[in-house]
Computed example of a mutant assay.
Amino acid sequence: MKPLLLVSLSAAALCVSACGKKAEPVENTAATSAAEPAALAPAVLSPGQAFANTAAASDAFEIETSKLAASKAQSAKIKSFAEQMIKAHTDSTAKLKTAAAAATPAIAPDAALTPAQQQELADLQTKSGAEFDRAYARLQADGHQKTLDALKAYAASGDVAPLKAFASELVPIVTAHLNMAKGL
């Protein structure tokens, strides 16, 4: 009986000490630091949230690299493509937000760039002239291929109907962007 009493008192003490404290929000970020302890790692995301974050980060990456290209590219063809990508990915972000808001429960896409995207953007910023144009074209082809793969996968087996519809709608658009990027 004493062990049961001890456990009960310990549990009661924990409950009392926790009273009045606000719950700390759990941060769900797409990217975590490698130095971050495992105990502080973000919670596992639902497939819908993970897809929304991937799509949002992809749009953000395309917009940021394209803004850079619009001002820094040497080729008029690259600059024109970059302007098209800024508009297309701004539109895509708006559609994603609408689809995510229609989910039950609503999803808030996190547009934080992944560490790989941050590094690619930083590397691109160091280039100029024809080297910049080649690097931008390569990033656009690679990025659009990854996005197309994610869209096709989610359109086929996603778990949130509005996001599945969004993914299906974007497949032909991203396919066209990929083909354009390969032609740069």
Rank of each mutant, 00 (worst) to 15 (best):
T126I: 06
A56R: 00
A56F: 09
I107P: 05
G183H: 04
L6R: 09
I63Q: 10
A150N: 03
P37N: 13
I86E: 08
P172N: 04
G129I: 13
A73H: 09
L121C: 08
Q118T: 14
A135F: 11
H177P: 04
A156P: 01
S66N: 07
A43C: 13
P105Q: 12
A106G: 06
L96D: 08
A12Y: 03
L9H: 13
G143A: 05
T114P: 08
A130G: 00
I173N: 00
D123R: 12
T98M: 14
S8N: 03
K95N: 13
A141V: 09
A52W: 01
A39K: 07
R138Q: 13
Q125M: 14
F166G: 04
E64K: 06
L6V: 06
P37C: 12
L151R: 00
N53F: 11
M1Y: 08
G183L: 12
V16D: 14
G48E: 07
L184T: 11
V16G: 14
T54S: 03
A100K: 02
S10V: 09
R134G: 04
A112G: 09
K21Y: 10
L113W: 07
A35F: 01
S75I: 01
I86H: 01
L40S: 15
A130I: 03
T29M: 03
A88D: 05
P105C: 10
S75K: 07
S80R: 09
A18V: 15
D59K: 06
L68K: 01
L184W: 09
E24G: 13
S17Q: 13
L148A: 07
D149F: 10
A106Q: 10
N28R: 10
A70C: 10
Q145E: 06
T114L: 02
S157A: 15
A43S: 15
P37A: 05
A30H: 00
T54W: 06
T29I: 05
S58M: 03
G183R: 06
A106R: 00
T175V: 01
A41S: 14
L184F: 12
L96H: 05
A56T: 11
E131V: 12
T65R: 10
V44K: 13
A111W: 02
K21Q: 15
A30V: 02
C19I: 02
E27F: 04
N179V: 06
S92M: 02
I63Y: 09
C19S: 12
A82I: 02
P47D: 14
A165I: 10
D149R: 07
E120Y: 04
M1G: 12
A73W: 00
K72A: 11
G158L: 05
